[in-house]
Design a protein around this nucleic acid. Structure first.
Lengths: 184, 184
DNA sequence: ACCCCTTGGTTCGGTCAATGAACTCGCTCA
DNA sequence: TGAGCGAGTTCATTGACCGAACCAAGGGGT
C-alpha cells in the first residue's frame, strides 16, 4: 500500500498494531525472521524489497522491540536481527492469516506445513498450536513445504527453506557462520 | 502505507492474505463490520478515510467474499455491506492483533473488552475464545469500552459503540432503519 | 601498497497509491 | 421547484515506495 502510515483518531489497539505491522513488507519480514532469517542480505535475497525499505522496516521493528539487533562481529562491525520474545508472539497471528488465506482465497493449498517435532509429530492447527500438546515453542516446530509452494525463487536462502527445517534455526549466512564455528 | 499492492514472487499464503488485508484501512473496515457497521456513510463517519479509498476497499472485500453486498432499498437503489462467513473468520485474527498490541506496544490498556454474553459472562481470551465454552459465535459476544478507549471521536456511530453492544448487531443508519421497521 | 570483494547500508529521480475537496447521480420529500 | 440525502466518481496534490547507483568499513590476495 501507499499509506500515510498512521491511523490518527483510531484510538484502537488494532490501529496501533497496524501502524507498525500493517506497513508493506513488515509481516513478511517477521515471517522470515521466524523461519530463521537474520541478516540484511538474507532478507534482501528472499524478499524483493528495495534496500531502503528493508532498512527502514528492520529499524522500526527493532525500535518496537519485535527484533533484537545483535552484534555478531566486531571487526568489521556487523549486526544481525533476531526475533525477540514479543516477536515470537506474532507467530499465531501469522499462522492464522496464512491459514485464513488457504481457506478463503484461491490458491493451490498451503505453502508450508507445520508439525510438532519429536515424539508428538502432529500437524499444527490453524492457530499454530498442537492439537495434542497445546502451545508449542517455535524451536519445536518443523516446517515442510506444502503443495502450494511454488519454486520460482532461486536464491540460496529460499532453496534452503525448501528442505524440512526447524523454526528459528538460522538459515543463510548466519547458518554458515555457525557451521564454520562448530567445525573449527 | 503507500504500497504497490502485490507481493509478486512471494508464493506464500501469508502474502496472498496481505495482498487483500494488508492494504491500508482494510482491516479497520473489517473490524467495524464486525462491530455492526454496514453502510458506506457509517464507515465514512468512523474512519477518516478518503471516500475513494473506502469505495475501493469495500469493492475489493466484496469481490474477495469477505463482505456481501446486500440491497436494502430498491428505489433509490442502495446496498449495505454485511460480513460474510469468511469475514467472520477474521475475528480471531483481529482480536489477536489487538491483544498483541495491548501486550507489547505502549498504550493505556485495551480499548475494548469482550465477554461471552448471557449465562457464561466470562471475558474472552487473546484469541477471541471463551475460556469456559471455547469458540463463541460473534452474536454472543458483548463488547464494552476499556480503559484505553479515547473519546475524541464524536460521530454518531462511534458514540453508539461506546455503549455495551453485541457484535454484528447493526449500528448507525442500519440500526435506525431496523428500529423504524419494528416500530411500524 | 593496491585492488577487489563482501556486508550493510544511504541517496536520489520517478512512479503510483492515498488524500481531500469538489462534483455527480438517482431519488425523495416539502 | 428545489433542497437534501446516500453513495459514490473525478481530479490535483502529496508522499511512500521503487530500483538503480553510490558509499564506507573492513577483509584477503598479490
Amino acid at each position: 500500500m501507499a499509506l500515510g502510515k498512521d491511523y490518527e483518531g483510531q484510538s484502537c489497539s488494532l490501529a496501533r498494531a497496524l501502524e507498525l505491522l500493517g506497513e508493506r513488507w513488515t509481516l513478511l519480514i517477521v515471517r522470515d525472521a521466524i523461519y530463521g532469517v537474520r541478516r540484511y542480505s538474507d532478507f534482501l535475497a528472499r524478499l524483493d524489497t528495495p534496500r531502503a525499505v528493508l532498512s527502514d522496516r528492520l529499524h522500526r521493528l527493532t525500535e518496537a522491540g519485535v527484533l533484537d539487533r545483535v552484534r555478531y562481529s566486531e571487526a568489521p562491525p556487523r549486526d544481525e536481527y533476531v526475533l525477540s520474545d514479543s516477536g515470537r508472539q506474532l507467530w499465531p497471528i501469522i499462522v492464522a492469516l496464512s491459514s485464513w488465506a488457504d481457506d478463503h482465497l484461491t490458491g493451490d493449498g498451503p505453502c508450508r506445513i507445520f508439525h510438532h517435532a519429536g515424539a508428538c509429530g502432529r500437524e499444527l492447527d490453524g492457530a499454530g498450536a498442537c492439537p495434542h500438546c497445546g502451545r508449542v515453542a517455535l524451536e519445536e516446530i518443523e516446517m515442510t513445504p506444502g503443495p502450494g509452494l511454488d519454486s520460482t525463487r532461486t536464491d540460496a536462502v529460499s532453496l534452503e527453506l525448501r528442505a524440512p527445517h526447524r523454526l528459528l534455526a538460522p538459515v543463510g549466512s548466519a547458518r554458515e557462520a555457525e557451521a564454520r564455528e562448530v567445525g573449527a
